Simulated assay, not measured.
Amino acid sequence: MDEPGPVEASQCVAVVREAGFCFVHAETMRPALERFATLSDWAMFAASWDALGPDPYLERTGRARRRRHGVFRWAEGTLTREPHQPHFQSLAYNRLQGDVDRWFDPIVPEVGDSASLRAVLGFSCEFFGALAPEVSAWRIEVHQFRIEARSDAAGEPTPEGVHRDGVDYVLVLMVDRANIASGTTTIHSADGTLLGSFTLHDPLDAALVDDARVFHGVTPVTPVDAAKPAHRDVLVVTLKRE
């Protein structure tokens, strides 16, 4: 399946409403984000992925990734950070690690308070709010993920396979990719039919997903040069109505 061409920002809500997902190129995402806050601290924001801790729950399955996690709440136009708490998914949505309270290292304050993250969260609340105008409050979970690939083991961005997250909406934002091949985001119907695919390549490339309607996954990543470090850094934001 050919990767989609650029979608204008003004079209994205309609595309998600019709198809259940939309892929957005960085040149469209940047001005959309900058409507909410400056991205002047993006270099600090992106560098924070170098300080992610290991995912201890995934290590038990013989797999590896690094992550941090934070919870926010949006209500009546106000965004607040909630106390640190576990991430939970039922087995219905995560057959690999479901029905477990998973505690991850918290997103550090300078990242949680950064203009770049505020821009992403402001955009997410407005964009997905346009798809669900009846919602007055959102529970927002923010995940920093680093998937590392080695010459002897491909990195698995979605080790649970093609899945839903058990929320209302999902934003996946590319932060950095270094020395990797593949890592293609795929969207599927409930019967497994491939509906679309797109490789998040440049910083700020994004996937916008209606999680209640479609499934998503990401193909494994492998090093281009086996002698050098290889990683895929993404920010995942989920919104669930209260």
Results as ranks from 00 to 15, higher is better:
3 E>G: 02
4 P>I: 15
5 G>A: 11
8 E>D: 10
8 E>S: 10
10 S>C: 10
19 A>D: 12
28 T>W: 03
30 R>D: 03
31 P>R: 08
32 A>S: 08
34 E>R: 06
34 E>C: 08
35 R>P: 02
36 F>E: 12
38 T>H: 03
38 T>Q: 02
39 L>M: 08
40 S>E: 13
44 M>N: 09
45 F>T: 13
53 G>D: 14
56 P>H: 06
67 R>A: 09
70 G>T: 15
70 G>C: 07
72 F>W: 14
74 W>G: 05
75 A>D: 07
82 E>C: 13
84 H>G: 12
85 Q>D: 10
93 Y>A: 12
95 R>I: 14
96 L>C: 05
106 P>D: 11
110 E>T: 14
111 V>P: 00
115 A>F: 05
116 S>H: 06
118 R>A: 14
120 V>G: 03
121 L>F: 08
121 L>I: 15
125 C>N: 09
130 A>G: 11
132 A>D: 09
132 A>M: 10
147 I>W: 04
150 R>G: 12
153 A>R: 13
156 E>Y: 00
156 E>F: 05
158 T>D: 00
159 P>F: 05
161 G>M: 12
162 V>I: 14
163 H>T: 13
168 D>R: 09
170 V>R: 00
171 L>W: 08
172 V>L: 10
181 A>R: 09
182 S>V: 15
186 T>V: 15
192 G>A: 11
193 T>C: 08
195 L>P: 04
196 G>W: 01
197 S>I: 14
199 T>C: 04
210 D>G: 00
214 V>P: 00
216 H>Q: 08
218 V>C: 11
220 P>T: 15
226 A>W: 06
228 K>W: 10
